[in-house]
Amino acid sequence: MPIVAIPSLLRNLTNGEESITVSGTTIREVIDNLETRYPGMKARLCEDDRLKPGLAIYINGLLTRGSIRERVDADAEIHFLPAIGGGIAAPSH
């Protein structure tokens, strides 16, 4: 199952757990399953069925274009990090 690295600012929702193994074949499913176990998680990561502005998804260390529809392998490692684009730090607000 994919492993999600929990950003330190969200670890209050996971009782301090730094990484969570969770089922899912897309980022959306992974987030939904995280939400079931740790209520409140989805609202911190998503807005209107998309990733929050200023966030980016890294799968196995590679930046994806931030869509929650992105497919993930069974052994994927997933990170949610501040978005960087075009030499830009995407505005976070």
Binding site: L81, P82, A83, I84, A89, A90, P91, S92
Partner: peptide, 12 residues
């Protein structure tokens, strides 16, 4: 004047 400094990449 508006949010959006490159503190994100700086921290990374």
């Amino acid at each position: 004047a508006y949010p959006g400094s490159p503190v994100g990449p700086g921290a990374m």
